[in-house]
């Protein structure tokens, strides 16, 4: 009969699992979760006054962040609630106000996403919440030259025994990032970002 209690508890856990999911997935407090997916329709894009990104957190959670400023190639995107994602050539180099944040200290040491370069290096990354310093080895390669340029960034973090790949789609003409899929923090799933420029 204890098994019945076990089943009942499992039922309760269904809701608990949802709670934990909520804790983990919406790294952005204002994320839209579930059916209210923000669709990048022509109408929606036309309605926006400023350049923006749609950040997809997976499992239907996504958010719109607008371009706050551009400074020396560094783009600052801000949400309604003040959370920020800062990108450099499409790569997220800093975040603030999220549940988990990062800061790539030496991002300017590398010039990447040029069709001519396939190279490697080490990013010095400060993970926040909780704070820890890690070194991320990377190898960038151009893997597709179709309508857009597709770069693959193979990442390796020895101390965490983890490796993964990030992807960046760049517009062939302008060289501007139009879409990325990247993992920024060990506690977060991979983010997909769509870039829409209004200038």
């Amino acid at each position: 009969m204890i098994k019945k209690l076990f089943l009942l508890f499992l039922l309760l856990l269904q809701s608990c699992a949802f709670i934990s999911y909520n804790q983990i997935v919406p790294l952005i407090k204002t994320a839209t979760v579930g059916d209210d997916d923000v669709e990048l329709s022509d109408e929606f894009i036309a309605q926006q006054s400023y350049s923006f990104i749609r950040v997809d957190l997976g499992k239907g959670a996504n958010i719109i962040m607008v371009l706050q400023k551009i400074n020396d190639g560094i783009y600052t995107w801000i949400s309604n609630e003040g959370e920020k994602i800062i990108t450099y050539n499409g790569k997220i180099i800093r975040t603030s106000g999220l549940i988990y944040n990062i800061d790539i200290i030496n991002f300017k040491d590398f010039k990447y996403f040029s069709p001519s370069n396939n190279y490697s290096g080490i990013f010095n990354v400060m993970l926040k919440d909780p704070s820890a310093f890690i070194e991320q080895e990377f190898v960038i390669s151009l893997i597709d030259e179709g309508e857009n340029l597709l770069f693959e960034e193979n990442m390796k973090v020895d101390v965490l025994n983890s490796s993964y790949s990030n992807y960046y789609w760049l517009d062939r003409k302008s060289g501007m990032p139009i879409k990325t899929k990247q993992k920024i923090h060990p506690m977060l799933p991979k983010l997909r970002i769509d870039f829409v420029y209004k200038y």
Binding site: P130, L160, P186, M187
Partner: peptide
Amino acid sequence: IFAGINDYIYP
């Protein structure tokens, strides 16, 4: 054990 990084090695 390194302080900080531990939280990621032993989540």
